[in-house]
Design a protein around this nucleic acid. Structure first.
Length: 453
RNA sequence: GCGGCCAUCGUUCAAUGGUAGGACUACGGGUUGUGGUCCCGUUAACUUGGGUUCAAUUCCCAAUGGUCGCCCCA
């Protein structure tokens, strides 16, 4: 008889069209959020939606799929997100579409399309849902990521920028993540950015030989990004580089100055970070990121969220001139951070009563009894599929219920129920009509006893 | 897209060039309708594809996935 190995060897070479094997795993970077993690997610949903409501933001849902050029135009063709991270495909009808890598472009589109600008300004919108980026996954970084964010459209006053920062910070704080600072910077408007850019280029040109290879390339393509580089030698060079905040035009400078004043008014820890440059083209003036500070031994952490002003986006997409500012939070990262910090979430509602049945007649009757208990607001657990009373009690014990109701053949016929106190083990036969009242009474008593101890 | 490390029951940790063992969990049992401990049992894994070899879970290569760093971002 051939053994497994020889079978393997004699197997035919893979045919042109091999039978596709079912892989019990989602594609790379995709993951399940299992019941064990749901309390965290539930908490995140609760806090974010509360904050949105408190600040007067209304929910908007936009499609997961948009035309690819919406993102290309909105986010910028030179950005990494558009250049190499989009899930793009052609539909059967030949449309070029992509899964959204972020929300802002789609929201700007919807804002223009539906004439949302007729509402009084600012128009405040919030969103939540998945986005897709084809990146190399690692901790806190997935190809399917969940975001929550807010956009305020039609308001130029820096106080709204601060309010946006306040919201983001408050959400993070309320989730129990207390070790967070806000990094802020202003990258100016297109006009002053252009002159600053020239200044930067000429500065780095003079120090070109001291830069890393990547940065020499960036010098041509996107010199602002050199400020982000972590290479030691580049860090050295950029220490003395001209800073964007020193070269803002008058209007942008005033905007930023006011923003800082407002920010100081709040008790939010913030840091001016002249090297903060965000990767999306549409940003103007204010940019910010929420950073958890790492402990001494810990590696550096990635941003929990960020945002900024995008005064030119709506106009560039064909809408009217609309200053706007927004932020988004990476929910996966928030959950990750909550878990790391050991943040407590709400307790799942646990059943306090277990219903056990024995025998065919009782089994049938227990269905109704279960419903009656549920209807009167008593959360009941059961394990109807199990036969023996013993195994049902084991389950009841594992669930740590306070009471177990036992409905056997005899009780079912008599119209009674055994009510068993799990702590003491004492049990009593009571009339079926009085069951609900008795259970309610006992559950309250149980609570009192615990408190008096 | 680039580089490092890793890959064994559901989880976790072993061992081994001759196909794998424990712990936890799950399920069942320790007689007739009663739970926590204890005891017994059952289910359950070598990521995939090549190569070396008489023989690969073990060695080599690749793919895939995970993780970490870079890039970038939430």
């Amino acid at each position: 008889m051939p053994n497994k190995k020889t079978l393997k060897k004699t197997k035919k070479p893979v045919s042109v069209e091999p039978k596709e094997e079912l892989v019990l795993q989602p594609p790379r970077g995709m993951r399940d959020i299992l019941p064990g993690d749901q309390p965290y997610w539930q908490q995140v949903r609760k806090i974010t939606e509360k904050a949105a409501a408190d600040f007067g933001y209304r929910r908007i849902d936009i499609p997961l799929v948009e035309f690819t050029n919406l993102f290309a135009r909105g986010i910028g063709t030179g950005t990494d997100i558009v250049e190499k991270e989009m899930y793009s495909f052609n539909t059967k009808g030949g449309e070029k579409v992509s899964l959204r890598p972020e929300f802002t472009a789609g929201i700007a589109r919807a804002y223009i399309q539906h004439g949302l600008h007729v509402a009084s300004k600012p128009v405040k919108l919030y969103y939540t849902g998945p986005c897709y980026r084809y990146e190399r996954p690692q901790e806190g970084r997935y190809r399917e990521l969940f975001q929550f964010g807010c956009e305020a459209l039609g308001e130029n006053d820096p106080i709204i920028d601060v309010q946006i920062i306040q919201m983001g910070w408050r959400i993070i704080h309320q989730l129990g993540i207390r070790n967070v600072t806000v990094n802020v910077n202003s990258i100016g408007c297109p006009a002053c950015r252009k002159s600053y850019r020239n200044l930067l280029v000429s500065y780095f040109e003079s120090k070109k030989q001291k830069l890393c290879i990547d940065c020499r390339r960036r010098l041509e393509k996107n010199p602002l990004r050199i400020l982000d580089c972590k290479e030691d030698k580049c860090v050295q060079v950029k220490m003395n580089a001209p800073q964007s905040i020193d070269h803002l035009c008058d209007e942008c400078r005033v905007h930023f100055k006011e923003l800082l004043e407002y920010l100081e008014e709040l008790e939010i820890p913030f840091e001016l970070d002249p090297t903060l440059v965000r990767g999306l083209d549409y940003y103007t003036r204010t940019v910010f990121e929420f950073f958890p500070h790492a402990g001494a031994e810990e590696k550096k952490k990635s941003a929990l969220g960020g945002g900024g002003r995008y005064d030119g986006l709506v106009r560039s997409m064909g809408g009217e001139d609309t200053p706007a500012v927004g932020f988004s939070l990476g929910l996966d990262r928030l959950v990750l951070e909550m878990k790391k910090l050991g943040v407590r979430t709400y307790k799942e509602q646990k059943p306090r009563v277990f219903l056990a049945q024995l025998g065919i007649f009782a089994k049938k009757k227990s269905l109704r009894m279960f419903e009656a208990l549920e209807r009167s607001g008593i959360m009941v657990a059961e394990s109807f599929g199990r036969g023996s009373l013993k195994s049902q009690l084991k389950v009841a014990d594992r669930l740590r219920v306070e009471l177990t109701l036992i409905l056997g053949q005899k009780e079912a016929i008599d119209g009674t129920v055994i009510i068993k106190d799990m702590a003491s083990g004492n049990q009593e036969i009571i009339n079926g009509d009085k069951l609900i009242d008795e259970v309610k009474k006992r559950l309250k008593m149980g609570g009192m006893v615990v408190r008096n101890q």
